[in-house]
Design a protein around this nucleic acid. Structure first.
Length: 632
RNA sequence: UGGGGUAUCGCCAAGCGGUAAGGCAACGGGUUUUGAUCUCGUCAUGCGGAGGUUCGAAUCCUCCUACCCCAGCCA
């Protein structure tokens, strides 16, 4: 992988879990097994990405295995839709789980048998207290709870009651199975926690087989034990559950002994990562779904154009510790830009078009258009997909049949089809007209890396960005890198031009700029010490393509939108989305595959929309702007 | 409040008794056909606070303070 060299030079943040594993290995641990255990009740977000990278990354680092396991113990909240999306997300990040996908529900039979085991051992009982009563009996932090009146019920009776709970004889909420631990424990989780509750709901995996479902606590550690998980990594809020986790492992005939370790959850400013709040954003229509590019969901980041490698690099840069801080969004953005800068092809897109006419175009451009009635074999070879042999055939055909009457007659030559003709149309001059309407320039796809080149049609009429022209020629040369009347500017990958004139409409708006090009300045500096003020991007007005660009900004305009219990929706940034219809891009861009990333030079990074981009209706999403140190 | 955690630069974070790494951000300089990239440089006598132990403390001890988590038949 490409980040190998990075990991060799960049010092890894410490990871106390890796320290634990290395100690365990010294004690004789042979194989590390981890797991990523989401509940399929929503879409994964950046916080889960950290957990995925930690669990899968740890397994990878120590040549172990990592399972993907759905913790599906509460059917009311879960859905197959989420199962599918989560698998998609894990794969997108580039991880492979060991063996098949697992489900907690795979083990429901075992859990039931283990529940019976605990009852027989006198360590669990069916309790008939209502939820309200149970809450009262549980006591308060400073005062111990009271034993349930059903606590000393006989094993036989509990066994029978549990069986009947399973058979659907009782209503939801009427009875539960509880562990008999300690109603006076200062740890509330140990005050006779619930093992099974009645839920008359069908389950996305087990259908209607069950109407009682195990609680998280009665399931999670046992799942780990069944799968041979050695290091069960979860977030800090589960630290209080560890004694219970261990209690089950000690009191049940489990095949292996997993250990639980907790690390600090990832928080990022200017966004929210609580499932409840993300759901609210979707349900109330503040965003366009879970995969809205403004969402911190993996699906959203993907649609926004964040690369999986960038997300991974960011997650790997985070220390695995027990502190609960909030990482600056700028730190994430650094990794997004770093990866995109390396890998995104460069292109030009004019987002606010202003027409620029090159007044001396005809006299000065180097045409590569071909007059098919006079071209030689060698000249035909310049066309796309035409080699020496085909070129010879064309010349022969022309000699035998006389001049072409139409450009399209080229297909009559054996070996040239519609497709070849289409690709070459712009390189062929119309019959009987001067072959000079387009100059094909070539530009590198990347300024530093060897990524090849692209063809850039340069024509008499171009589009430049409105913001790049000013009629005010008194503007400081140093401060304003603009096309200013009477001054020079470099067209990126093309000529240096000089602005000469402009046209205003009745409303006083500039609608057209006239400029002349300096011959011989493609790839060369102008003679006579002329220094352009700067460089600007452009697109041919006749050869370029119109495209739609969606610009996204942060969803919230305060650092901690969910601080406190106030309405986090009040902090929504009303200008987080805008769509610009009249953008012009290089012709080649419309053929880009969905999810291809580009840097639109001087504008930022953009991605062809995963779902809506097509050659007919090109749609690009702004992933992130370029770093901008331009101070006015 | 009882229990469980955590406190080192604006943010993330190393450090594990020997005299405060690194990254992000910020700010300066250089290169540049992207105001990008790249590159060079600046940025904690200070480690939540107060005492103490020690030749020596961010690291050990004592007390204090602040913040986070638990008190669902959610995970």
């Amino acid at each position: 992988m490409s980040n190998n060299d990075a990991s060799n030079t960049v010092k890894q943040p410490t990871n106390f879990i890796h320290q634990v594993i290395e100690q365990d290995q010294q004690q004789g641990l042979e194989k590390v097994v981890t797991r990523f255990p989401p509940e399929p009740n929503g879409y994964l977000h950046i916080g889960h990405a950290k957990s995925i990278c930690l669990n899968f990354g740890t397994a990878e680092k120590y040549n172990g295995e990592c399972n993907l396991r759905f913790d599906d113990t509460n059917p009311g909240k879960e859905d197959q839709e989420y199962v599918d999306a989560i698998m998609d997300d894990v794969r997108w990040l580039g991880f492979n789980w060991a063996g098949n996908v697992r489900y907690a529900s795979d083990y429901f039979d075992t859990f039931y048998a283990w529940a019976q085991h605990l009852i027989k051992e006198g360590k669990a009982y069916v309790c008939d207290l209502s939820p309200e009563q149970a809450s009262e009996y549980r006591g308060w932090a400073t005062e111990p709870g009271k034993n349930s009146p059903f606590r000393e019920r006989s094993a036989e009776e509990s066994l029978d009651l549990l069986e009947r709970m399973k058979n659907g004889e009782f209503d939801e909420g009427s009875r539960v199975l509880r562990a008999k631990i300690d109603m006076a424990s200062p740890n509330m989780n140990l005050r006779d926690p619930i093992l099974y509750r009645i839920r008359k709901q069908s389950h996305h995996q087990t259908g209607d087989k069950w109407c009682i479902y195990p609680s998280y606590d009665f399931a999670h550690g046992q799942e780990d034990a069944i799968e041979g998980v050695t290091h069960s990594i979860c977030t800090l809020e589960f630290a209080d559950h560890r004694p219970l986790y261990e209690w089950f492992i000690e009191n049940l005939p489990v095949p292996t002994v997993p250990r639980q370790y907790e690390f600090g959850r990832l928080n990022i400013n200017y966004t929210v990562t609580s499932k409840r709040k993300l759901k609210q954003l979707v349900d109330e229509g503040h965003v366009n779904g879970w995969d809205d590019p403004r969402m911190p969901t993996i699906q959203g980041m993907r649609r926004r154009g964040y690369s999986p490698q960038a997300v991974r690099n960011f997650c790997d840069s985070l220390a695995v510790a027990k502190t609960d801080g909030t990482v600056d969004m700028a730190q994430f953005e650094f990794f997004i830009r770093e990866d995109l800068n390396d890998n995104a092809a460069r292109a030009m897109c004019v987002m606010n078009p202003l027409k620029l006419i090159i007044t001396n175009f005809v006299e000065n451009i180097k045409s590569i258009q071909i007059d098919i009635n006079t071209a030689s074999q060698l000249e035909f070879c310049k066309l796309v997909g035409i080699g020496k042999l085909l070129a010879e055939k064309i010349v022969k055909y022309r000699n035998e049949n006389g001049s072409f009457k139409n450009v399209t007659d080229l297909v009559r030559v054996n070996g040239i089809g519609e497709k070849t003709l289409d690709k070459n149309l712009r390189f062929i001059a119309p019959i009987n007209s001067p072959p000079n309407s387009i100059e094909m320039l070539s530009a590198p796809l990347h300024p530093q890396k060897e990524m090849g080149t692209r063809e850039l049609p340069f024509t008499r009429e171009l589009y430049i960005d409105r913001a790049d022209f000013s009629e005010d020629s008194t503007l400081s040369r140093k401060k304003f890198k603009l096309l200013v009347l009477g001054d020079y500017m470099r067209l990126r990958n093309a000529y240096v031009i000089k602005a000469e004139d402009f046209v205003k409409d009745d409303a006083g708006e500039i609608v057209e700029v006239h400029a002349s090009l300096l011959p011989g300045t493609v790839g060369e500096n102008p003679e006579g010490g002329i220094k352009p003020r700067g460089v600007m991007h452009w697109v041919s007005a006749t050869e370029g393509k119109q495209a739609k660009v969606r610009v996204y900004d942060r969803l919230f305009n305060v650092e901690s939108p969910d601080k406190g219990d106030g309405d986090f929706l009040a902090n929504i940034n009303p200008d987080s989305f805008s769509e610009i219809d009249n953008c012009w891009v290089e012709p080649g861009l419309v053929d880009a595959a969905p999810e291809t990333a580009f840097q639109f030079e001087r504008e930022g990074y953009f991605v062809a929309d995963r779902y809506e981009h097509s050659p007919e209706t090109p749609v690009f999403n702004k992933t992130i702007g370029l770093r901008d140190t331009w101070k006015k």
